[in-house]
Amino acid sequence: MPAHPRVAVVTGGSRGIGRQAVSRLAADGFAVVVGYAGARDLAEEAVKEVTAAGGRAVAVQADVAEEREAAGLFAAAESEYGGVDVVVHAAGRMHLAPIADLDLAELDALYRTNIRGTFAIAQQAARKVRPGGTIITFSTSVVGLAFPGYGAYSASKGAVEALTLILARELRGRDVTVNAVAPGPTATGLFLDGKDEETVARLAAQPPLERLGTPADIAEVVAFLASPAGHWINGQVVHANGGII
Rank of each mutant, 00 (worst) to 15 (best):
A120I: 03
D101N: 07
A52R: 12
T113G: 08
G54A: 07
H89V: 09
A109H: 03
E80V: 09
A59E: 01
H95E: 13
A91Q: 06
T134V: 15
V143W: 01
Q61L: 05
F138K: 09
A65M: 08
A146D: 12
A97N: 14
G144W: 13
G144E: 14
A62D: 07
A75P: 11
A59Y: 07
T137K: 06
A57K: 06
A52G: 15
R130V: 01
G144M: 10
D108G: 03
I121K: 01
K128Q: 14
F119N: 04
G92E: 07
A146G: 03
P131Q: 07
E106I: 04
A146K: 12
A100Y: 06
A122I: 00
H95Q: 11
F119M: 08
A62Q: 09
T134F: 02
A109I: 06
L73C: 00
K128C: 10
R130D: 01
V88K: 02
R56V: 02
A109R: 12
R127C: 04
D108C: 06
E67W: 08
G72Q: 10
G92N: 01
S139P: 10
A125S: 09
V87Y: 13
A125E: 04
G92I: 02
A120M: 14
I136G: 14
A70F: 02
V58Y: 07
A76G: 08
I136D: 09
V143F: 05
A100F: 07
I136E: 06
S141K: 02
T140F: 09
G133E: 01
Q61M: 12
A105S: 14
K128I: 09
L107G: 07
L102M: 14
V84P: 10
A125H: 03
I136Q: 12
L104D: 09
A126F: 04
M94L: 15
R130N: 04
G54E: 09
A90W: 00
I99C: 13
R130S: 04
E78H: 13
E69L: 06
V58M: 09
A125R: 00
V129A: 06
A75S: 15
A59F: 05
R68A: 15
